[in-house]
Every structure is written in structure tokens, then in C-alpha cells.
Design a protein around this nucleic acid. Structure first.
Length: 999
DNA sequence: CGTACTATT
DNA sequence: ATCCTAAATAGTACGT
């Protein structure tokens, strides 16, 4: 046993690592990765051990949270015979068995700890948490700093000014709700438990803990418990004074002798032992250099490659000279050491054929090896902004262009006067030909100051004339033999096309990232640079200012502008090099090349075309809405007996539930009265006119401000049309999003709203054509989950909701009451969203029990749906990822959350994602093919808008019918040849003078 | 700048 | 036992 005696004292950093929580985390992370990394050649599962070792090495070498340890203990739970089981046999009774593949890895983890020259700490009777508590207490007494590495909230009771918890990152940072690594100090504890660390056990005693099966008090959760403890000071006082509590249920829960016994027992269960008789002395946890040869021998035996190499480098030993540790080689070896588990049953590593490599991947490399090599390369090279050139002469420009032709690829970035590609002016262009080899060509920079009153400021002297630069760059940017790389190429494409350059062929790093990492992180350049290159970009705000200090890019000094602009091109190029090998390695090359990259040109064309709106009609509507609002407002103030700001939910809530004392009050997340439509609808349904009028006013207010008044502001001065901006990489499912303005939420559901839609019109001599997929998500569900009745109904063209109702309620489709069909329709939609009885009950305004019965019935009639849902949940739990039938992967890193309701949320999202995502894939396929199909048919129609399952075209009146035929064919055949659906797709299409009538 | 609300699929 | 409760977005107004 290797122990180093190093007295703990002031200045010592004691790391106490909760080994069990690490082991599980390592395991769940490992199963997200390709199976081939998770088994040794003899099928011994080692994936979790590998990640465990990686993390351990990191702790030993670099520490965590900015500290390096002087003392380090990896502490495990030994077995089942905790003293807590003695005093409460049901303690942790609900714990399920660890995953089969993890079991043989437990002893290997301990072996790994020893290989690192440390002693795995574990003891009978006491759990890891007790040992951590004991060491932490001892270390504090000696004046040392303690860092507890764990995600377990039970340890929060130990936090004090010298004891910090550190929760290492789980999941990928960046996306909504992802758990990032974090330090937990007293403030964090107060945040979580609502009380200071010394009161945490009292709160836990009351709230109980479902995962450990600690009973707590009935009807009391963390929130209530914290409130009680804060009110009464501590648990004893609370229980003493409980008979005086007003709420009967709560009083009962805190006074009943049996209940009180359980609460006191709960406290014993959650309170950690701080004076356990530890077998290893604190002073003996001192950290020292491991025996590198022994460590390497162990890692060799595990057949790890990367970490073995790294250890060899770090400790300066030649790994090739070291034989694998015979104790751990082969089944005989590890079985003899570790007993009994039979690993013959372990699944075989998946053997897949490598797909044809991406055309840009050099021959002779296994793509995954190249991906790893590129990643290492990306992380190794530092970015040096001082090497960037500011191109001020035509000679230098021509040299860069010649070099770009030579290189065969160039990353580019355009700098402009605004973010709107349809109205901005070009300020400069940057190019990158290799890592660190980048330049900036300023073209439209202007002198500081405000310029004279009648025109802009003068151009900065010495810049190449814009027309000259465009003329020189055009052949390069249009040359088929030179690949053009950019981050968000759609923007550059649109800007440059306004200057007469049709850029191509293209690559887009934002979209490569989206194809690889949807849901794992966002895809902005700065975030990708940080993630993949470990590099902090200069931000736009840093060079151009913000708020009233904003000067616009044209006024940025040339040296600053060069650093910023050339860096963007340089970073984009480096990202491309780092990410491109991952496409074939992770089987996403086809997704990128068929569903992402071609959309850039397609959408750029649509955005440039724009759509005409009738501003006069909107202006008239605005007036009408205003008049009606004034009338409603007068009624509302009279009923309220006072005037107030109707647009303020706060003031409205006070009137409704404070002053008027109306029933049915609900609270929002922040504890304010909710005045949401569902609350007001409930009131209105009971005949409350006040609520009805507020709802009417709200609707008009929304239509007026968001649409009637705002849309005309988006009309482009030059084109006279509205040009939305589509984002290809914004959603977690593959859908597009639309902004400035959002043309994907133009009203359609009621009469007043449809008037807005009527203002979207065709230009003279043309019509608008709207073509939308009918029930595409239900059709996809029928196909994916393989539901015979649904498939047959779609094949026969039967009303799907009526069919569902008929199956469920035994009512014939003919003469079905509308209400019955409506319920079936709600259920069908609910299914797609990951139904709950609560949600369905809400939707249909029926009791939850009834909703529950419907769902049960539905699953009985369509058992395949239940199977699909369960299978999807299983997949996302194991892989943190689901995949559409077109191969698009959607990631849910936060499925690792410790919060069960969070996980339930992500499970529902995961049920919906392959359906919504496949629908998004299908319409993308149609869009990519559409322009060429229309041209081939000799038609002049143009695609203008996409609204998830709908495409809007503008076509010459005479070509309306022919256009509809082509559009329908392309849309209905879109899945082919990649996917042969077992359900037909159906597209409805219509032509009219405005969008409302075409829809 | 965060919260509440509402428009669409 | 408790929490939350049907998926995905973008825009506006209020109020700190």
C-alpha cells in the first residue's frame, strides 16, 4: 500500500472525491460513445474505467476549480451493510441494480485508483458520504481547505467557508439546462435548499428523499420544509410548536406521533457522521508522483490508447517498453481477481463498415483517427493575431487571390454596416488560406466623427476601391475548383450576390457543427471557437462597441478591424479542418450534404426574393384594432371601477384576484398572479364578461403591435418587399426558425388574425400558392412506430381522427359526433408530444381520471405507439440522443440531470424529436429540389416562405396549376430515395391573390 | 435584461 | 413523496 505521510495544515488543499458518483457518471458517459471504445478486445467492459482514469489523471495533474490538491482521497461505498440499513431496513430500498456492464468495472476502478498510487478509501458500516464528512471535519480543524468533488446534494450539509463542493460538468455546456461544472458554496446551498448548510439536514429530514427512500414528513417537499425551518429556526423547535400550525394537513403531518418518529428517523438517515473511525489517517492521503511504469502497465492491460500515451508523455516513460500488467490481462486474470461475473454475455462491439469517406477526407486515414488528430492539432496551435495582414494594395490582393487558387480552398468572412444582408453595405472581406494565414481587405471603412451633415464621412485613405476588389475576387469566389468556407455562409452569399458575386462551391462550419452536435451546444462562431479550438474570439462588441458607444464596423480602426475580421476567417478555417473529419466518423456526412449545405443557397434565394405586403391594408387594420381596443378598455375600466395599465399583467392580476377577489387564481413561476389566457378563459367560460373583454383586448393588442404596426417597418427600401431571415441552426429538431420578421407565426386561427394574413399578397399578374403537408407528423408516427390501423387509414385516405375515435370508442366513422372526433384529435396530437393525463385533461377540459382512461384505451388499441415511446425513452436514457429516419441525430445531454422531472421533460422532447425532426428533414429535401424542378418544368414560380409543413410560392397567374402539380410531386416524393415510407404523404395546395385565401 | 404573455406549426 | 405536467419557436410590453 502506497501511503505518503504529509501532515495536513493551513495551506493544504484536501480533495475528497465521491468515487461512487464518479463511477456512475463515467459509466453513463461511456455508453453514449461508440461501443467499440467501451470493451477490451476480450469483451471486458472498460468504457467507464477509461473515463474514470481520464478524470483521475486530470485531478492528480491539474486539480479542479482552480486548485491543485496536496491531499486526495477517492472514497467509495463498500457494500450494503450501512448502519443506516440497521436503523431503517427500507433505506435505499428502491435502488435498482447497477447496469450489467458496470458491475465488473467496480473492482477495476479501485484497481485504477491503486495504479495511480492512491488508496481507494472504503469502510464497512459507513458510507462514502460519512467518510467524506469525517475527513472534511478533520481537515477543517487543521485549517486546511477542502474541496468535495461530488454531485450528491446530501453532501451540501458540509459546506462552510473552508469546505466547497465541486460538481464536475455533466452533459455539454451551452444548451438550455445543461449542467455545467460548478462550485457549490454557501450561496448555492441556500439557493438549492432554501436554508444555510447547517440547517440542510433539518430540511432533508422533513422533505425526505425518494432516491434514498428517506420518508420525511407527508406532504412536505424541500420548498415547504425550508419555509418551516426558516420560520421556526430548527427542527426541534418546529416539532415542539407544531400543534400551533394552522393548516390541518400539515399540523397532522408534524404532530402525529408515528409521523414524528419517522421525521426524527429521517434526520438520522440524512445526517452524516463526522467522526467515523477512519482506517486511513487524513495525513496519509498526501499526494505524490505515481509509479509511472506501474500505471502504464495497468492502462496497457486495459488496452487504453490515448490516456496511456498521455501518461507516458506526462511522466516521461516510453510506453512501448512497458508490458501490460499481467494481473489484469485476459479473462483468467481479471476473473481470478474479481470473482465471478461472466462476461461472455457482454454484447459484441458493434461492427460497422465505414461508409465511403467524405470527399475531402484524405485517403488512407480512418476517419475517426483523422478526427482525433485534427482535434489535437486544433487544440495545440495557438492563434496569433499579430500575423494577420491588412491588404491595402491591389498587388497584395492579387497575391492572396493567386495563393487561394493555389491552395484550392479559402475561408472568407464579409464585414458589413449591419446584420441585415439585404440592406447592409460591404465594409471589408477577410480571407484565410491556412491556420494563422489570414488577411483583411478593408473596402468601406470611414473616418471617425460624424461626417458632414449632408453625407457620410470620408473613406479611410489607402483602401482598395470596392469595385476593383469585387472584380478581382469574383473569379476566385465563383471558381468551381476552389472551395469557399465560411461560418453562416448564407449571410455572405446574400451580401456578395448583391455585389454580383455568386459564391460557390461552399462549406459552412455552422452547419457542420449543427449536423454533428444538434442539442449539445449552440453553433455561433465564438462558441465553436471556445469548444473546439479552446480559443476566445474577439467579440464584435469589443471592436464596434455597444449601446450608445456603438460605432458600426465601418468606423473601426483598420488594425483592430483586421484582428477581428481575419480572426473570424482564420477560426472558420480551423474549425472546418477540425470538424470535417467528424462527419464521416460520426456518420453525419450525408445529413450535412443533403439536408444542410444545399439549404444555404435555397434559403438565400428565398430571403432575397422576399414577399409583398399591403401596407395600406395593415395601416387600416391598425386603426380598426385601436378603435375596438378603446371601446373594450372603457368597458374594462368601468367594470374594474378604476383605470390601470391593461398591458401590465401585474396590475391586471391585482385587480382580478386582489381587488375583485375572483376565484381560480393561479400563480406564475415567480409567485405573481397568473393572468394567462387559460386562467382568463376559465373565468370567461363561467360567464365573466370582464375576463372575456380582457381576452379580446389582449388579442387585438397582440395583432396590432406585433403584426399590423411592426410588419411595415420590415419593408426593404430598395425591393419594397419583406425579407425574413431563416436560421438553419437554431432549433433542437432540425426545423428552421424565422426572424426579423418572424413569418412563421402569422395569425391564421381566428377571423381577426386572418385579416393580417390577407395583407400578404402576390405581385401584379401573379398568385401566391400555399402547399402544405397534411398530417405529416401523424403519418411519420404511423410509419416509424409501425401502426397497422393508422397506416391503413392513411393509405385509404380516411379521416385519421375519426378513425382513431372509432377504434377507441367503438363509434362508426359515419355520422360521428364532432365532440368525439375532437377528443380523438387531441389525443393524436398529445401522443406526438409525449402525452400526459394532466396535459390532455387540460386540453379537453375534462377530469384527469377521464383523460387517463383515454390514454390507457389508446395504448390498448395501438400498442405499437406505447412500444415506440418506451423504446425512444430507453434510447435517450442510454445514448442521450435520438435519430430521425434520415439519419439526423438530436442530442439531449441534459438527460443526465439529477432532477427526475427534468429527465421526464427531456424524455418527452425525445419522443417528439424524431417525428418533428423527420418532418423537418422531409420539407428540407423538398426545398432543396424545388427550384430546379420548377425550372426544368419551364415554370417561373419562386419559393418564398417555409412554415414548417408549408411552402409558399409566387407564380405567374397562368402557371398556377402547373406549379401546383410540380410542387406537390416534389413534396410528396421528398423522402425518396433515402426512405421508402410505408404511408403516403399528402400535400394540399391552392392558389389565390393573398396568403389567407391560398392557405 | 428577465418575466409574462401570445402568435404559429 | 413531490414536482410537474404536450413538442418546437420569435416578438412585444412591462418593470426592475
Amino acid at each position: 500500500m502506497t501511503l505518503t505521510h504529509k501532515p495536513v495544515g493551513p495551506g493544504s488543499h484536501v480533495f475528497l472525491v465521491d468515487g461512487s458518483s464518479f463511477v456512475f457518471r463515467a459509466y453513463f458517459q461511456s455508453i453514449r460513445q461508440d461501443a467499440k471504445y467501451n470493451y477490451r478486445s476480450d469483451r471486458l467492459p472498460t468504457g467507464a474505467v477509461r473515463l474514470f482514469c481520464t478524470k483521475l489523471l486530470q485531478f492528480v495533474r491539474e486539480g479542479a476549480a482552480g486548485r491543485t490538491p496536496t491531499h486526495l482521497a477517492i472514497i467509495f461505498d463498500k457494500s450494503e451493510n450501512s448502519f443506516r440499513k440497521e436503523i431503517y431496513p427500507d433505506y435505499k430500498a428502491h435502488r435498482s441494480e447497477p447496469p450489467e456492464d458496470l458491475i465488473p468495472q467496480f473492482p477495476l476502478m479501485r484497481a485504477a485508483v491503486r495504479a495511480f498510487g492512491l488508496t481507494p478509501i472504503e469502510q464497512d458500516v459507513y458510507e462514502a458520504d460519512d467518510l467524506i464528512a469525517t475527513y472534511a471535519t478533520q481537515a477543517r480543524a487543521k485549517g486546511a481547505d477542502v474541496l468535495i468533488v461530488s454531485a450528491d446534494k446530501d453532501l451540501m450539509q458540509l459546506v462552510d467557508p473552508g469546505v466547497t463542493m465541486y460538481d464536475p460538468a455533466s452533459g455539454t455546456a451551452g444548451t438550455k439546462g445543461a449542467r455545467e461544472e460548478r462550485l457549490i458554496d454557501e450561496a448555492e446551498v441556500v439557493d438549492y435548499f432554501g436554508v444555510t448548510p447547517d440547517k440542510v439536514v433539518d430540511v432533508q429530514a422533513l422533505a425526505g428523499d425518494s432516491t434514498d427512500n428517506v420518508p420525511g414528513a407527508k406532504g412536505v417537499g424541500v420548498k415547504t420544509a425550508a419555509q418551516l425551518i426558516n420560520e421556526y429556526g430548527d427542527l426541534d423547535t418546529l416539532l415542539e410548536k407544531a400543534p400551533g400550525i394552522k393548516q390541518p394537513k400539515r399540523r397532522e403531518a408534524l404532530t402525529d406521533p408515528e409521523a414524528v418518529k419517522l421525521i426524527r428517523l429521517s434526520k438520522k438517515l440524512v445526517e452524516l457522521v463526522r467522526d467515523a473511525p477512519v482506517e486511513t489517517k487524513l495525513d496519509d492521503l498526501g499526494l505524490h508522483q505515481p509509479d509511472a511504469k506501474k500505471l502504464v502497465a495497468f492502462l496497457q492491460a486495459m488496452e487504453f490508447t490515448t490516456i496511456t500515451r498521455r501518461v507516458g508523455e506526462l511522466y516521461g516513460v516510453d510506453i512501448h517498453e512497458i508490458e501490460p500488467d499481467p494481473d489484469f490481462v485476459g479473462p483468467a486474470g481479471w476473473r481470478a481477481r474479481n470473482g465471478e461475473v461472466d462476461h461472455a454475455a457482454a454484447p459484441k462491439p458493434v461492427e460497422r463498415k465505414e461508409p465511403a469517406a467524405h470527399k475531402l477526407v484524405a485517403d488512407g486515414y480512418a476517419p475517426s483517427a483523422l478526427a482525433a488528430a485534427r482535434k489535437a492539432e486544433a487544440l495545440a496551435s495557438k492563434i496569433d493575431r499579430s500575423s494577420y495582414e491588412t491588404v491595402m494594395s491591389i498587388e497584395r490582393l492579387d497575391q492572396w487571390i493567386a495563393d487561394a487558387f493555389e491552395a484550392g480552398l479559402v475561408a472568407l468572412d464579409t464585414e458589413t454596416t449591419s446584420l441585415d444582408p439585404m440592406s447592409c453595405e460591404l465594409v471589408g472581406v477577410s480571407l484565410a488560406l491556412g491556420p494563422g494565414r489570414a488577411c483583411y481587405i478593408p473596402l468601406g471603412h470611414r473616418e471617425g466623427g460624424d461626417g458632414d451633415l449632408f453625407g457620410g464621412a470620408d473613406l479611410v485613405a489607402g483602401q482598395i476601391p470596392l469595385e476593383t476588389a469585387i472584380r478581382q475576387l469574383k473569379p476566385l469566389f465563383e471558381d468551381d475548383a476552389v472551395l469557399k468556407i465560411a461560418q453562416n455562409m448564407k449571410y455572405d452569399l446574400e451580401v456578395l450576390s448583391r455585389y454580383g458575386i455568386a459564391v460557390g462551391p461552399i462549406e459552412d462550419t455552422m452547419l457542420i457543427s449543427y449536423a454533428l452536435d444538434t442539442g449539445r451546444n449552440n453553433h455561433g462562431l465564438d462558441e465553436l471557437a471556445k469548444k473546439h479550438l479552446d480559443h476566445e474570439n474577439i467579440t464584435f462588441a469589443q471592436v464596434a462597441g455597444t449601446g450608445r458607444n456603438f460605432i458600426g464596423f465601418a468606423r473601426v480602426a483598420l488594425d483592430k478591424a483586421t484582428e477581428y475580421a481575419a480572426e473570424d476567417a482564420d477560426v472558420s478555417l480551423r474549425l472546418w479542418r477540425a470538424l470535417i473529419p467528424r462527419l464521416p466518423a460520426e456518420r453525419k456526412a450525408a445529413v450535412y450534404e443533403t439536408l444542410e449545405r444545399p439549404m444555404v443557397e435555397t434559403l438565400a434565394r428565398m430571403e432575397r426574393r422576399g414577399i409583398t405586403i399591403d401596407r395600406h391594408m395593415l395601416s387600416r387594420l391598425s386603426g380598426e384594432f385601436a378603435q375596438e381596443m378603446v371601446r373594450l378598455e372603457a368597458d374594462i375600466f368601468e367594470l374594474a371601477g378604476e383605470s390601470f395599465n391593461l398591458g401590465s399583467p401585474k396590475q391586471l392580476g391585482d385587480i382580478l384576484f386582489g381587488k375583485m377577489g375572483l376565484p381560480g387564481a393561479k400563480k406564475t413561476a415567480t409567485g405573481a398572479w397568473s393572468t394567462s389566457a387559460s386562467v382568463l378563459e376559465d373565468l370567461a367560460a363561467e360567464g365573466n364578461d370582464f375576463a372575456r373583454r380582457i381576452l379580446d383586448w389582449r388579442q387585438l393588442s397582440k395583432l396590432k403591435s406585433t403584426y399590423a404596426d411592426a410588419l411595415p417597418g420590415f419593408v426593404n427600401k430598395e425591393t419594397g418587399r419583406v425579407h425574413t431571415c431563416y436560421s438553419l441552426a437554431a432549433t433542437t429538431t432540425g426545423r428552421l426558425s424565422s426572424s426579423e420578421p418572424n413569418l412563421q407565426n402569422i395569425p391564421v386561427r381566428n377571423e381577426a388574425g386572418r385579416k393580417i394574413r390577407k395583407a400578404f399578397i402576390a405581385s401584379p399578374g401573379h398568385v401566391l400558392i400555399s402547399a402544405d403537408y397534411s398530417q405529416i407528423e401523424l403519418r411519420l408516427l404511423a410509419h416509424i412506430a409501425d401502426i397497422p390501423q393508422l397506416k391503413k387509414a392513411f393509405a385509404d385516405g380516411i379521416d385519421i381522427h375519426a378513425m382513431t375515435a372509432s377504434e377507441m370508442f367503438g363509434v362508426p366513422v359515419k355520422d360521428m359526433p364532432p365532440e368525439v372526433r375532437r377528443r380523438a384529435k387531441a389525443i393524436n396530437f398529445g401522443i406526438i408530444y409525449g402525452i400526459s393525463a394532466f396535459g390532455l385533461a387540460n386540453q379537453l377540459s375534462i377530469p384527469r381520471e377521464e383523460a387517463s382512461a383515454y390514454i390507457k384505451k389508446y395504448f390498448e388499441r395501438f400498442p405499437g405507439i406505447k412500444d415506440y415511446m418506451e423504446a425512444t425513452k430507453k434510447t435517450v436514457r442510454e445514448k442521450f440522443c435520438v435519430t430521425t429516419i434520415f439519419g439526423r441525430s438530436l442530442h439531449f445531454p441534459r438527460m443526465s440531470s439529477a432532477n427526475p422531472s427534468d429527465r421526464a421533460f427531456y424524455e418527452r422532447a425525445a419522443i417528439n424529436a424524431p417525428i418533428q425532426g423527420a418532418a423537418a428533414d422531409i420539407i428540407r429535401r423538398a426545398m432543396v429540389r424545388m427550384d430546379e424542378a420548377l425550372t426544368d418544368a419551364g415554370l417561373h414560380a419562386q419559393m418564398l416562405l417555409q412554415v414548417h409543413d408549408e411552402l409558399v410560392f409566387e407564380a405567374p397567374e397562368a402557371e398556377a396549376e402547373a406549379t401546383i402539380i410540380v410542387a406537390r410531386r416534389i413534396m410528396e416524393q421528398a423522402p425518396l430515395p433515402a426512405v421508402h415510407m410505408s404511408v403516403p404523404l399528402h400535400v394540399d395546395a391552392r392558389a389565390a391573390k393573398n396568403w389567407d385565401e391560398a392557405h
